[in-house]
Design a protein around this nucleic acid. Structure first.
Lengths: 350, 350
DNA sequence: ATAAAATATAAAAACGTTTTTAACTCTTCG
DNA sequence: CGAAGAGTTAAAAACGTTTTTATATTTTAT
């Protein structure tokens, strides 16, 4: 029925190389290369002969061979922590647009937000699988910095962070969005409209960027003169599931918070669901803020923060490209600040 | 401040090669290769010398060199049409899990749902940038099939489709989910609860898979004895925006539909928003179905279809892997069927 | 008619690995 | 003590390109 057997056998045949084409066309490999890449002189007649031979043999140049000789891959890698968070789409878009215009292709890599995954991505740069790397990282470990230092190609670090690398003399550009300021502003916002009992959905423990967010929560509380209550902080995961169980827990406390600040939107959404499932209303029964400005927050009316992800991707790509072209020399750190989008979920004043 | 200048210069230095390591350690390159890969005999003392030299030179093996010699990359590519559709996350997860266990790394590629992007992905397989390709495709063009035929490595096609490739003698495995049956069932479901005026959000015109969905809509109407009305069909884009403007348009008609079938969830969500913004209620004023079973549909209570995306990813990867290991011989076509998840949005009976 | 320049091709080197072959040294066993 | 074998390393070949150099041919300018 399916001609599986024959095809499969055919498939194991070695793919034609430039040597095969040269032999069939009766010319040297150098000439074939010239003809196919339109470089140097080659007679029209010869060129046609070569093209015909290439066609006949189904010739496709082997990338590894080419890379080895030319020392460039024309590929750029974007490594993201999480494929279930819409915020990275904007980055992908921004990067894609920028590099495509310069004849590069984009490969995505998925780190799972773990140091090991981030190191894997860096290793692919070291091994020169790609010419450059844009790494959205959650870790701020020395070992990551060390590995990047070993790379001969450029990396740009895209951070959801405050200024941790700054001044460290790191050998790469950074583009960051100051999430610390986002969380700080959220808490401040809630305090300003009268909340004193502010819960916090903290995300995954031991992940550096979530540690920073937590610090922002504590600092903002302190600056607002609100005492810190450990039982109001819920560590779990940065996902919707994490937010759901956090929301459930906090909402069911006897002395429950009047507001909840989630350390990202996925958690805020999960929390929103939990409150609804418990018969509560947002903001009627509890105020809520998120961070990332996901589409669904606009729909559900959850206060959040625009993370300028498209711009971040664009800028990161721009830096990478100018470094690849050898023009840019001194390393730059670029900072953006999240912009609050106040919506119904936090309009509930006490 | 930043030691940009010096570092940048340092960075342009050629990365150390195995030859450099051999020279520094005072041995031959072959021995270095053996030592680093723990192959054959090499004296402990020599091995240590080599390791030390490699460390000192920051040596990282060049992947292109290795690929050229070994003829395998240990990379698998998953090409997806759309990074803003959560349905592909499940696939990514499924594929990742499966191939990682066998020592392969996953690269993602983004096709934008366009033939050109899909061909680009196939070309990367032809050029042997990766050992195998899993392609989620929206196109059903002969040229795509032809290009795949030229590949020396295996491809698995992941389709949101009905049986178009079947029996075509194609040289690849397929894993498909019968979206035709999904849309057909949705319309049937709406008809069964009494709707006779069923609008349709059709997605992007000229995209093959959306053509198939449209056919399902028409067929289901016919089989239910409902006359087709062109003005109830809205072609735009498969995105949330597309759904929004479609919902707006259909809802504002004088003789408006009593139900809307969206060809995917993003459109259903957009439609839901549009109805809400116009002061309408789902399902109070209009019934609604989607397809993909996105998270948000559970939250908003929109009837949708589970697409078994995780299973699809897993199966696709399993097929690819067994073909890479050379064990499987005849090509297989695997079909799944979407499973309806009835929710509030379509509980409104006339 | 000759020299210079332009056109056209072949041959060889190089990129960085792995693998194969060969050779040399040391044990071990009869 | 000699031979077989194991341990150890070097040398060379091969993977598939691109690029450089060399050489031959044709065209153009003097």
């Amino acid at each position: 029925m399916q001609d599986g057997g024959k095809k499969a056998k055919e498939m194991t045949n070695r793919q034609a190389s430039i040597t095969d084409v040269a032999r069939l066309a009766g010319v040297s490999v150098g000439t074939v290369s010239h003809a196919l890449n339109s470089v140097g002189y080659v007679k029209q007649e010869t060129k046609e002969k070569i093209l015909k031979a290439a066609e006949e043999l189904n010739y496709v140049p082997n990338r590894a061979g080419r890379i080895l000789k030319t020392r460039q891959t024309r590929l750029v890698m974007l490594a993201i922590p999480d494929t279930s968070n819409e915020i990275y789409f904007g980055m992908i878009e921004g990067v894609q647009k920028e590099i495509k215009a310069l004849g590069y292709s984009l490969l995505l890599y998925y780190t799972n937000g773990e140091l090991e995954g981030e190191l894997d991505a860096v290793r692919l740069l070291q091994e020169r699988v790609v010419d450059g790397l844009i790494l959205v990282h959650f870790s701020y470990k020395q070992v990551l910095l060390d590995e990047i230092r070993r790379c001969s190609g450029p990396a740009v670090l895209l951070g959801m962070c405050n200024h941790l690398w700054a001044g460290a003399g790191h050998p790469f550009d950074t583009v960051s969005i100051d999430v610390y300021s986002g969380i700080y502003t959220a808490v401040q916002h809630l305090a300003k409209i009268g909340h004193r009992k502010i819960g916090y959905l903290a995300g995954r423990r031991n992940v550096d960027v979530y540690g920073q967010r937590f610090a922002a929560y504590r600092d903002a509380l302190k600056d607002a003169g609100i005492p810190y209550r450990e039982e109001y902080v819920y560590w779990n995961d940065w996902t919707q599931m994490g937010g759901y169980s956090g929301g459930r827990t906090l909402y069911q406390m006897k002395d429950r918070p009047t507001a909840i600040c989630a350390s990202n939107d996925l958690q805020a959404i999960g929390c929103w669901e939990a409150v609804r499932d418990l018969g509560g209303k947002v903001p009627g029964d509890i105020a809520l803020t998120g961070l990332d400005n996901l589409n669904i927050c606009k729909i559900l009316g959850i206060t959040s923060f625009d993370m300028k992800e498209n711009l971040m991707g664009t800028e990161a790509a721009r830096h990478l490209m100018s470094r690849l072209s050898g023009s840019q020399m001194s390393y730059q750190d670029l900072y953006f600040r999240p912009e609050i989008q106040v919506r119904d979920s936090s309009l509930y004043t006490l």
